[in-house]
Simulated assay, not measured.
Amino acid sequence: MQRWDRVEAFVEVVRLGAFKAAAERLKVSSSHVSRLVSQLENQLGTTLLYRTTRRIRLTEAGSVYYQHCHHLVEGFREAEAAIKDLQARPIGLLSLTCATTFGERYLAPLVNDFMVQHPQLEVRLHLTNRQVDIIDEGFDIAIRMGALEDSSLVARRLCERREYVVGSPTYFTHRPQPHALSELAHQRCLIGSRDHWRFAVEGVRREVRVAGPWESNSGPALLDAALKGLGLAQLPDYYVEPYLASGELISVLDAYRHDDSAVWAVTPHHRHRSPKIRQFIDFLVERLPARLPRRR
């Protein structure tokens, strides 16, 4: 049966390039590391390392063995760290970014609730409608809405999100309600942060470019314009569902609504997440859906 300490010693010698450095990393003597590697070679029946007074060099067999074993050592250590973190408290600085309105209404109160539970934690909450590069700008978590495009990041779904095309009853006294996507060309469309609206046609995502006399990158401003009858707007559920329930807004083109859109917690691609990141995302998964308005 293969001994794990022999494999770990071999991997550390190769990774650090010296028996002495590996011994310091493993907190044992150099002779003990050398003995473990020799035992592994005897067990495998082959030479893994060429040893000289100045350096070590992998044999062909050693190179193959290292390629298969080094990620196992890393995975073992990740597993140990993950178990230790199960009971660890979130400490240090937690850096977050989110779109402005969603962050003010829904994320910030939950961040504050989390800090009440963990007063030893520090938080930096940056609200912006700009697409932030979380790696270059040093954020632990970004809260993003809609379809995700960056596959280099790790995403966890927090809750569902629906987008509606809405207009006020006042607006529809002057223009007919559209029933097909082609009819949007004859409507006054209020432009938000993008000039194309997303729909689903027979299960396939489709984008329709829209135009109109009004444009803003502010969600609340867009909502106010729609409520005052200035045109149609495409807005997420947490903006419009209370007004749909009250009758102040009317939803159109529901047959084409693109429902596969969610709120996500996005993090850099690390194998192991610190307790502050893991526990905060778990907290959002548990608490966020209950805070969002939902149409009855």
Rank of each mutant, 00 (worst) to 15 (best):
Trp4Ala: 09
Ala9Glu: 00
Glu12Tyr: 13
Val14Pro: 00
Ala18Glu: 10
Lys20Met: 13
Ala22Tyr: 01
Leu26Ala: 03
Ser34Leu: 13
Ser34Met: 14
Leu36Ala: 05
Ser38Phe: 05
Gly45Ile: 04
Thr47Phe: 01
Arg51Tyr: 00
Thr53Pro: 02
Arg54Ser: 11
Arg55His: 05
Arg57Thr: 09
Thr59His: 00
Thr59Pro: 00
Gly62Pro: 00
His68Ile: 10
His70Asn: 08
His71Gly: 06
Val73Cys: 02
Gly75Glu: 09
Phe76Asp: 09
Glu78Cys: 10
Glu80Pro: 08
Ala81Leu: 14
Ile83Pro: 04
Asp85Gln: 14
Asp85Ala: 15
Gln87Arg: 13
Arg89Phe: 06
Leu93Ile: 09
Leu93Gly: 05
Leu96Asp: 01
Thr101Gly: 09
Leu107Trp: 02
Gln117Thr: 05
Pro119Asn: 06
Gln120Thr: 10
Leu121Ala: 05
Leu121Tyr: 01
Glu122Thr: 10
His126Ser: 10
Asn129Thr: 08
Gln131Pro: 09
Glu137Gln: 14
Gly138Asn: 10
Phe139Pro: 00
Ile143Asn: 04
Gly146Phe: 03
Arg157Cys: 12
Glu160Asp: 15
Arg162Lys: 13
Arg162Met: 10
Glu163Gly: 12
Ser168Ile: 05
Ser168Gly: 06
Arg175Asp: 06
Pro176Val: 06
Gln177Val: 11
His179Ser: 12
Leu181Phe: 01
Glu183Asn: 02
Ala185Tyr: 01
Gly192Asn: 03
His196Phe: 13
Val201Thr: 08
Val201Tyr: 05
Glu202Ile: 02
Val208Met: 08
Arg209Lys: 11
Glu215His: 15
Pro220Ala: 08
Pro220Thr: 07
Ala225Tyr: 04
Ala225Asn: 07
Gly229Phe: 03
Gly231Ile: 03
Leu232Val: 07
Ala233Arg: 07
Gln234Ile: 06
Val240Leu: 07
Glu241Thr: 13
Pro242Cys: 10
Ser246Asn: 08
Asp254Gln: 14
Ala255Asp: 15
Tyr256Pro: 07
Arg257Gln: 14
Arg257Asn: 11
Ser261Cys: 12
Ser261Gln: 15
Thr267Pro: 03
Thr267Ala: 11
Pro268Ala: 06
Arg271Gly: 15
Arg273Phe: 12
Ser274Pro: 07
Pro275Tyr: 03
Lys276Leu: 08
Lys276Gln: 09
Arg278Tyr: 06
Ile281Pro: 01
Ile281Asn: 02
Phe283Ser: 02
Val285Thr: 11
Glu286Phe: 12
Leu288Cys: 06
Leu288Glu: 01
Ala290His: 13
Pro293Glu: 02
Arg296Pro: 15
